[in-house]
């Protein structure tokens, strides 16, 4: 289990792709938004929280199809399925590795991009908190989507179509936390709801993902 996690992390760092790409994409989104909506700081500070959440979500999506694709192609997944480690744990480890290489760096990068988008000073704490609690859900849901599309050639677009509707609750609650935080309102309700979604998803979806993988490996 730990070995699997370490292997996934090493692969992600070595190939460079997934790790740097998500961050670069996030940066580009944050830079392009002012070009699209105009440079007024008042407008930007109003939409900054939402833009950062959306950017993080899309950046998360970029590296999803790598979660199982390589292991599927070279047969590692068949070995993992027959390994003494339960497949549910494998799915959880994969999701954790994805979060450590995508969600966590995105969360840490978000405040820097917040400055670019003139996020109000009150917003930073809640932006980081909401991303920290919300991005694990994105990784776990994404792992489920990746498991569904693992056997499909060029399933990237399909993966996005399947996963994006499932991201709606997390996005709504997470962006609401960040927005309310930036406006200095109380954030308890959306924060509690988002954490609830994250916890439920983390508890249940690895089992479903493992079920899906077993169907795919049949």
């Amino acid at each position: 289990m730990r070995a699997l996690l370490r292997r996934d992390l090493t692969l992600a760092f070595r190939s460079g792709g997934g790790f740097g790409l998500g961050l670069a994409f996030f940066l580009i989104v944050a830079i392009l938004v002012p070009f699209a909506v105009g440079p007024e700081n008042a407008l930007l500070s109003k939409i900054a929280a939402g833009i950062l959440w959306l950017g993080a979500l899309l950046a998360c999506l970029l590296s999803l199809d790598r979660i199982f694709a390589l292991d599927w192609e070279d047969g590692t997944l068949d070995l993992l399925a027959t390994a003494p480690v339960p497949l549910e744990m494998v799915c959880a480890a994969k999701a954790l590795a994805h979060w450590l290489t995508t969600g966590l760096p995105l969360t840490l990068a978000a405040p820097v991009l917040g400055i670019l988008l003139s996020l109000p000073p009150e917003g930073y704490v809640w932006l980081i908190a909401s991303l920290l609690l919300g991005t694990p859900a994105l990784s776990v849901i994404g792992t489920f989507g990746a498991a569904l599309t693992v056997g499909i050639k060029r399933g990237g677009l399909l993966l996005s179509l399947l996963v994006l509707p499932l991201y709606v609750p997390t996005l709504i609650f997470g962006a609401e936390v960040a927005r309310r935080g930036a406006e200095g309102l109380t954030v308890t309700t959306p924060l509690a709801l988002m954490s609830g979604v994250s916890l439920a998803v983390i508890a249940v979806l690895p089992f479903v993902s493992a079920l899906v993988l077993r169907v795919n490996l049949r």
């Binding site: 569904l148 509707p165 499932l166 709606v168 709504i172 609650f173 979806l205 079920l211 899906v212 169907v215």
Partner: peptide
């Protein structure tokens, strides 16, 4: 797989309904 997607999707559809209300 589509049956699993339908089940998971139903849960998320209900969840989205409440999230959107909120």
């Amino acid at each position: 797989l589509t049956a699993i997607l339908c089940l998971v999707g139903s849960v998320f559809a209900v969840l989205s309904r409440y999230a959107v209300n909120f």
